[in-house]
């Protein structure tokens, strides 16, 4: 993503490879009409409806009442709405924690499965497999796993770890129980991206460091880690956009409860628009969510890009 966004910059992170020209010069220009089909479908399905929907955010449309123009009233209501504010805090906390934990775990998995251990291909497959399940399936499954006396509790007790059992979905910790299930679901894709990144590092580099007497940790920190910068950028951008929009897991597992402790902005938006029929207000929340995600992702991209350039 970074390289794509930094097109035309002379300091683009392109390391030249012998026998291959760096793609800086463009002697031929591909025809613009190649863009048209995609642009038309995308505009029809995503851009136009989203714009048309956004207009509702400035009306008090509800149920079957077309509503009237109310200016910024919905956004003012959002500022006063305790539930929405709690949801915003949760959304940000979840996005940050998932991004940090999932990225770290995915990287560790990738490092482990990039070594010559036995059955690494099978393990790569297994760690990626949950990605194939729908979020609703995963939500239902984990709701069942977290039941008091259910699969998780009985396993912990069977292992003599009974003191660890707790009210997984029934306490303020419910948010983190859900986060754990999401990380289980998605860590495979982070692993896959890092594995690909690791496999593109020329083995000569780490071997040279090894000859110089660098230990595994130092080799990782000074050789491998900087070369994974772009993988990290991609991982974080994808994880952030996905975790800000989380909906199905909370919807299935707790419906936002207990109380409002697992409410997220997507959930509040859904409830307002489709459970209460308050389309105007629901749309206003969706709009705010979009702007937050866009801002965070673009800030993230510029920061991590700078990080990569120091290499």
């Amino acid at each position: 993503m970074t390289a794509v966004l930094s097109r035309g910059r002379s300091d683009a992170p392109v390391r030249s490879v012998p026998g291959r020209p760096a793609p800086r010069r463009r002697p031929t220009v591909a025809p613009t009409w190649f863009l048209l089909p995609a642009l038309v479908v995308y505009a029809l399905v995503v851009l136009y409806p989203s714009l048309a929907g956004s207009v509702l955010a400035f009306t008090d449309r509800s149920g079957f009442d077309p509503g009237e123009w109310v200016g910024l009233a919905n956004f003012e209501k959002l500022l006063r709405d305790d539930a929405a504010r709690a949801a915003l805090t949760n959304t940000v906390a979840v996005a940050v924690v998932i991004t940090v934990v999932q990225t770290t775990l995915g990287l560790l998995l990738a490092l482990a499965l990039n070594s010559a251990i036995r059955a690494r291909n099978l393990m790569r497959t297994l760690f990626f497999a949950p990605m194939m399940l729908s979020p609703i399936i995963v939500g239902l499954l984990w709701q069942y796993i977290y039941t008091p006396g259910g699969p998780l509790d009985s396993t912990l007790e069977g292992l003599g770890l009974g003191f660890l059992t707790r009210s997984w979905l029934g306490s303020d910790g419910a948010l983190w129980a859900i986060v754990a299930s999401i990380i289980w679901h998605h860590v495979g894709i982070v692993m896959a991206i890092y594995l690909a990144g690791l496999q593109s590092i020329p083995p000569e580099l780490t071997e040279a460091a090894q000859v110089d007497g660098a230990g595994a940790v130092r080799r990782f920190w000074y050789v491998t880690r900087p070369l994974l910068g772009q993988s990290t950028t991609i991982v974080i951008a994808l994880t952030l956009t996905a975790s800000f929009k989380l909906f199905d897991q909370m919807f299935v597992m707790t419906g936002g409860g207990p109380g409002v402790s697992t409410q997220t902005l997507s959930l509040v938006m859904y409830q307002q628009a489709f459970v209460y029929g308050e389309y105007g207000y629901g749309t206003a929340i969706a709009l705010v969510l979009t702007m937050i995600v866009a801002a965070v992702v673009f800030v993230q991209l510029s920061i991590t890009r700078r990080g990569e350039h120091q290499v």
Partner: peptide, 12 residues
């Protein structure tokens, strides 16, 4: 498009 929630444009 990666950042827009699908619900925003669902009705239109």
């Amino acid at each position: 498009g990666l950042m827009i929630p699908a619900q925003l444009g669902m009705v239109p």
